[in-house]
Design a protein around this nucleic acid. Structure first.
Length: 465
RNA sequence: GGCGGCGUGGCCGAGCGGUUAGGCAGGGGCCUGCAAAGCCCCGUACUCCGGUUCGAAUCCGGACGCCGCCUCCA
């Protein structure tokens, strides 16, 4: 079974599950105030792979990921562009799902919206207020972090240490700079919900607590997200849950940053790169391969060079898939190990890959094994071992599929003019008219095709940009 | 100031005391009418300085460099 680094304990430990045979995951989703960026893509891919891998192991996974549809950034954008908050949310949630589909990410079982949970958030705040863990100020409701004994668990340092490093704020009535907003009182014209402590909107850290506990129940198995959410966002979520008497998540997972030119991509640095743009310009599987090729907790540098590198890797895999076309058909969606009977070289491969992925999601190690198997199967097919090669190829495709990477066996659509050139070239070749055949090949290449003579016939496919 | 991570061959990227990571790019060969695809072979890397050890990219100490968190962010 899968072992994962747990941010709460600081060590790799075996995932254990509240309910035998069932896994529950909550992954912090996006605030839909703009186009999805590369960081969104990475966390979505990483936790999609975890979800698939647990399913591969035979678990029934319930995967929840929220949409934050009320937030300062949404209000700001709406104001700037002179439209309603709903309009902004609708547009960018639409873009979000388009990008997720393009990345081959399975939709969550439940994708709750924050605005649908305001009543429950208000109830939680009333509870925290009654316990004197939350307090009201002139601009909202705040959480008193000193009331949670192990505050700083996820940050990896004690409260005092965090307090020493906290920046001084210009504001306010907060008891401590680390205290965080649970509720923001509305200014005129802002979206607002009624509450006993004044009309306003919920703070970001509250929504995930309420939604995760409502949908998955206390003690759910894995709470995950990007590393930048570890502190303060997840710390603060946990503080609320613990203060309210829950144990919250059994296990915390965080994926590493996306770097752009050796610097963290972040809002303040304003060096965001849009996922939507990346997907429009590249093979949509390239980012998944790039993410699988790096360890999930390490930073990944996304550049033209690293994406191109991944695309070339895909070309090798696709050429492999075309060669074993009839052995590659595996269908979409979740794959389960129990549905297959592996033996011989295939069993060895499956076992070795499983050991790697189970070891804190060592997908780079797993990919090395799979690329090795690609070479092996090709070599067998070059020799006389056709059947063994086909079987191994099938296993390779299944394992890639288990991680959400599909190999393409389909040729590109060929237009009539191109087909005419292909037929003319084959005719020339039959007549051993090599000059004409080569001239036609050059023409095809100039038109952006890659030309191969597979089993004596001209086969073309689109060259990558 | 506190906490944490990283520095590997042309590039990317694993590695967790001793036997080949892998990908991309490059070179040589086989195959091919010539190519492409595929196969075989090749580079012999680990920031620096000490130390532990029979043996270190891997452990310890130090130096230098880079990055992140402690503020919004996935």
């Amino acid at each position: 079974m899968l072992r994962l680094f747990d941010s709460a304990t600081g060590e790799v430990r075996e995932l254990t599950f509240r309910d035998p045979g069932r896994a529950s995951m909550y992954v912090c989703g996006p605030t839909v105030s703009g186009l999805p960026h590369l960081g969104h893509g990475r966390f979505s891919l990483v936790w999609d792979v975890v979800r698939r891998w647990l399913t591969w192991h035979g678990l029934e996974v319930t995967y929840v990921s929220n949409i934050t549809d009320i937030d300062d950034k949404i209000i700001t954008r709406a104001k700037e562009e002179g439209r309603s908050e709903e309009d902004v949310v609708t547009e960018f949630e639409g873009e979000w799902w388009i990008a997720m589909d393009a990345l081959g990410i399975e939709r969550p079982d439940v994708a709750p919206h924050a605005t649908a949970y305001v009543d429950q958030m208000v109830a939680l705040l009333e509870r925290l207020l009654s316990l004197d863990i939350a307090y009201v100020t002139s601009d909202g409701v705040y959480f008193d972090v000193s009331r949670v004994p192990d505050y700083g668990l996820l940050a990896g340092q004690p409260l005092e240490s965090l307090r020493a490093g906290a920046r001084v704020e210009a504001n306010d009535d907060k008891r401590s700079p680390l205290d965080f907003a649970l509720w923001k009182l509305a200014k005129p014209g802002e979206p607002q919900w009624a509450a006993p402590f004044g009309a306003g909107r919920p703070g970001w850290h509250t929504e995930c607590v309420v939604m995760s506990l409502d949908i998955l129940g206390d003690g759910f198995d894995l709470h995950a997200g990007g590393l930048d959410l570890k502190f303060p966002h997840h710390e603060n979520e946990r503080a609320q849950a613990v203060a309210a008497g829950d144990t919250f998540a059994r296990h915390w997972g965080h994926n590493g940053y996306v770097m752009v030119g050796n610097e963290k991509m972040s809002k303040s640095l304003n060096n965001f790169t849009s996922l939507t743009d990346l997907l429009a310009e590249t093979d949509q599987r390239a980012y998944r391969l790039l993410v699988l090729r790096s360890h999930y907790r390490s930073p990944v540098d996304v550049t033209k060079a690293t994406i191109t590198d991944a695309e070339r890797g895909l070309e090798r895999l696709d050429a492999f898939a075309r060669r074993f076309e009839d052995a590659i058909t595996i269908g979409d969606g979740f794959l389960r190990a129990a549905d297959y009977n592996f033996d011989g070289a295939s069993k060895e491969l499956v076992d070795a890959v499983t050991r790697r992925v189970d070891d804190d999601l060592d997908t780079p190690g797993a990919l090395a094994l799979l690329f090795d198997a690609v070479s092996t199967a090709n070599a067998w097919a070059d020799g006389a071992q056709r059947d063994e090669a086909r079987e191994l190829a099938h296993t390779v495709a299944v394992l890639f599929g288990a991680m959400g990477l599909s190999l393409s066996t389909t040729s590109d659509d060929v237009d009539d003019a191109t087909r005419a050139l292909v037929e003319a070239r084959d005719a020339a070749r039959r007549e051993r008219n090599w000059n004409e055949a080569d001239r036609l090949r050059d023409e095809l290449v100039n038109n952006g095709w890659i030309v191969e003579d597979a089993s004596g016939e001209t086969v073309v496919r689109r060259a990558k940009r």
